[in-house]
Design a protein around this nucleic acid. Structure first.
Lengths: 197, 197
DNA sequence: GAAAACATGTAACCGGTTACATGATTCT
DNA sequence: AGAATCATGTAACCGGTTACATGTTTTC
């Protein structure tokens, strides 16, 4: 049920079409909540039906129209309410760690290559979050720009710091995953049968 | 689709009934893959239909029977194949970090209490994984015992070390979440409007 | 002229959650 | 006598994935 609140969060910055939401945020890798376009469009219509957002038809190129949605006061209230509510914690379900716990069943090379992929995956995340933190701090290409433009200057620092805080958490997490996988590679090396034939 | 492999992984240790699987592993918090009983029973029947496990009716108390399943050679093969395959990485979808990125919309007290819950949640996980690692290392109440009993002694060290490696990763992750939430609390304190009226 | 981007969807499926159901047995 | 545990499920729902569809316009 968080997709709806991820959308409302983005709408607090500015009005957007489904396509913009998808391309610039939920479908890109630079946001904390991923969604596919086939999920976004129906959800937007649902949210409009519930009065959280309103759509307006705006012209698109020569012919045709597109729908740009903006948040309503009811939408803002609903978002605030969600922000003040506690969020339940999901039960653990971690396939990568499940596999690692049974690595003796894998070929050592397969285990090794999976840990290498783990490192590669989280390395791209480290780069991504680092770039994002940098953009937030310098204001160059900052994803928070729409939010800042819609807010009095006095609150800009606050907004930026919460986002930096968030992405630094994700950055540390990704670094932790890399360290873990590296320890795994070391362990595999250590357990490799010595070929002193 | 990992539920099936979590079950096969457990069956490599010993034969079990659905109830045992649920109570001792998937429904308890001491395992890396959670599942509800309403998910386990149908999956077991499905797996039996596909020949990955076989069930035998064993007597239960005076009257009645229960079904105990054990892994078949086909099941072992299927598990090994999964262990050797790479696992795709899911898109990010992190409601807790999403909220943190928009903390300026929450009442400071609500934000504070959510970070406190974050710390509490991951503190219980730290305790849990620490206890588990300890059990694995000392062999007292080790969850790996069935696996070890079913394996030549020469391979015991390997099995234990992969599990310790896994749970140490989860432990570090939980510690990282605690550190992150503590940084968040510090940030909230810092941003608190000074009441020097 | 072809490919990528713009814009918006539908339909089938799938894994997991929640709520509910049943009946025996053992423990307090 | 009542609660907890053993043992096994069904049914409805819900969020998300995958595959597919359509037509325009801009860029290479």
């Amino acid at each position: 049920m968080s997709l709806r609140y991820a959308l409302l969060a983005l709408f607090t910055g500015r009005a957007m079409t489904g396509y913009e939401l998808y391309k610039q945020y939920l479908g890109s890798t630079e946001f904390v909540w991923h969604a596919s376009s086939s999920q976004i469009y129906p959800e937007l219509r649902q949210m409009e039906a519930e009065g959280l957002i309103v759509g307006e038809q705006i012209p698109w190129r020569d012919r045709g129209v597109k729908t740009r949605y903006s948040i309503t006061p009811a939408g803002t209230e609903s978002f605030k309410a969600w922000m003040n509510e506690p969020l339940p914690y999901a039960e653990i379900r971690d396939a990568h760690h499940l596999k690692a716990a049974y690595f003796e069943w894998a070929d050592p090379d397969a285990a090794r290559s999976q840990l290498t992929s783990h490192i590669a995956h989280y390395t791209t995340l480290v780069e991504r979050w680092s770039r994002l933190i940098d953009a937030l701090k310098t204001g160059v290409n900052s994803p928070a720009q729409p939010r800042l433009d819609a807010t009095p200057v006095a609150e800009h620092a606050k907004i930026v710091r919460f986002k930096v805080f968030t992405y630094e958490g994700l950055l540390r997490r990704a670094e932790g995953e890399i360290a873990w996988a590296q320890a795994g590679l070391a362990l595999l090396d250590e357990l490799r049968p010595s070929d002193d034939t």
